[in-house]
Design a protein around this nucleic acid. Sequence first.
DNA 1: AACTTAACTTAGGATGACAAAG
DNA 2: CTTTGTCATCCTAAGTTAAGTT
Length: 786
Amino acid sequence: MSSSSSEDDIPLSKKRRQDKFAESNASMSGRSAERTPDPAMARTKSVINDDDSSDEEMPLAKRASSKTNGKAMKREASSDEDNVPLSKIVKTTKKPTPKKRIVNKEDSSSDDEKPLAKVKKDIKKVAKVKAEEESKVVRKQTKKVKDEEAEAQFKWWEKSNEEEDGDVKWNELEHNGVLFPPAYVPHGVKMKYDGKPISLSPEAEEVASFFAALIETDHGKNPVFQKNFFSDWQEILKKDSSNPNITSFEKCDFRPMYEHFEVEKERKKQLTKAEKQTIKEEKAKVEEPYLYAIVDGRKEKVGNFRIEPPGLFRGRGDHPKTGRLKKRVMPEQVTLNLGENAPIPKPLDGHKWGGVVHIHEATWLASWKENINGSIKYVFLAATSSWKGQSDMQKFEKARDLKKHVNRIRRDYRQQLNDKLMETRQRATAMYLIDVLALRAGNEKGDDEADTVGCCSLRYEHVTLEPPNILVFDFLGKDSIRYHNSVPVDAQVFKNIKIFKKQVGPDNMIFDRLTTMSLNKHLGSYMKGLTAKVFRTYNASHTFQEQLNKLTREEDSIPDKLLSYNRANREVAILCNHQRSVSKNHGQMIAKIQDKIRALKYQRKRLRKQIVQLDPKMKKSKLTEMEEESDLEDEWIAEHQKDLLVKEREKITTRFEKNNEKLASEGKPPQPKEELKEKLKAVDDWEKELQKEKKTGKIEVKASATVEKLLAQITKLDERIKATKTQALDKEEGKETALGTSKLNYIDPRISAVWCKKYNVPVEKVFSKTLRDKFQWAMEIDADWR
DNA sequence: AACTTAACTTAGGATGACAAAG
DNA sequence: CTTTGTCATCCTAAGTTAAGTT
């Protein structure tokens, strides 16, 4: 923080993160302490008296928030479910979890598939036989196609809804495993410790390099990041006794390495086109085997076949683990998911796979455990694949289904906003927020993660009340993005939040009797598969369609139509709070544009003066109608003129030098210096002229100039000024909203497809190539779809 | 555990400024 | 003075991986 001596220079988005940082530092005692509930406050009643005056009588959080015994709490919460009317527990009978079969590389070849696989097959036999036969047919057909022209895409959306085949996603699955990052090649550049160059073991050098590359970034300057990196690096240093004893981060100077990388970067840029081309080709050759998997005979694109390279964990927000070393992944840690009959790809030389499994009900191709949070990473098919496409379409269909139920759901929760039962009332209030504000569900998080919240995990401090009915939300959501919004709400919602807050007290969760699980369970009783996130999809798509209809004019030009499209898109992005960090030089950029505008205005002003000089009568007519340049101060003009002169001189000198170089290379003698002087003199003359202008207040008008000509020039300038202004405005408006996320994940692509058809806008204007590929299933939609 | 959503990072293509040529 | 070619800059799209939900 100390680095921010001039706060105003910091882009907004960065600031927001910094502020947050300050906040968490201020409350150093840590969250766990803050959130520990006051046992004296614990109460047990769970019926609500609606009268405000008797708020005190309200029940309280059994799970009054504590993280320390969260597990016990959760169990308790689930026992609460007994209160739920039976009718609401529709949950389908659980299928036995499929057994994973780990096959060691050695035994995999011979014995293989028969026993376990057969049992499994028997279980699902009845349901599956039909599908299997079908898929065999499909396979034969597509194999033929594949041999000729591999790309003929399988149009799954044209097939009638195949029987939902239990949870089985595939019968045969073949792929070439994963691509590991190349082994580390030491560069030998010595960093300094305590001012002296030191040599490091390759492993220690690698980790130091990870950090060195980041020293100029926000991460590299973040103390938590530094601390975590440093302690993990020390562990690595200890592993090789030849490493120097490094105990103080402050004494480390990573700059030599950083500079080395900068030079390398520059060198890469300087490569010729041909060299770049060969590098690209080599890369493609290495990747080639991993690009596609074969699913039931169909060739499908793989998404992320590359194993994530080692590096420093770049946790967002103030993640406690940010900066920790993300270790290199070895084949031993990687599990492959393959068909029983598929050949097992070769692991790295001298290595073995961690395991090979045949989980037919999963869509992942490979997985490994990551060492920072202990979570599992997966290799999936690409977004263009049928698996992803199908589930994407299902998602939007589900959102469309919601339309049929939403009125009933809304009526219910409105009614339940003053339910006697605390839990029900909280649930109804949460549903209101999820529905109206498109908040995320908000699972609880651990102490070893960034402190972010969603609807169910909102805490006391995240919502403030502004009578009569305004709620002010201010919290960090997913990715530590700030959600800051003032919304007028239903009177009862306002009242409820007030009550809940009073009950739970500071630092505690507002919906203390609600979990995402119980909420989703309840939603599921309205409609199969309905969960909190469906509301986000539904509301996003719905808003988009609404806005689009409202904004688009038949008679508009295509750019205008696109503007409407983007505006509708922006509405959705705002609803979903999709932000992007303002680029580091946004401020500069805007300043540059403003300067450009002023420079144009300066020119225009001169032209006007000239016109008046030519024809004094013009003064009162057209010219006065024109907008006055309020931001053109004399001071600025002087500055600007100086600038123009300096630039002109520079230009002349460099041109002169360049010319000389050219002459020299041709073996000719350089131009005489007098020539340069001669040319520079012209600028001097210009300068004098400007000074004279300043004194007399008159501009010398060229002999060829006429009023008409000057007016024409002014019109041109006017246009340019206007264009630049709107450009600036557009940039300013959109600087913080990211349109891409909603387009990619929330807005039903069929709405766009229909819109393009209806208004004759080419689809490629609204969908990039990847988007078109991903949404192929939506492109051939009927024009009357809604 | 498995899958979707999301922002951050990077690559490369479009765009505009500038110099040289017409 | 306008047009054309080149280079740097900027911006978008693709790629990556962290952070959510179920």
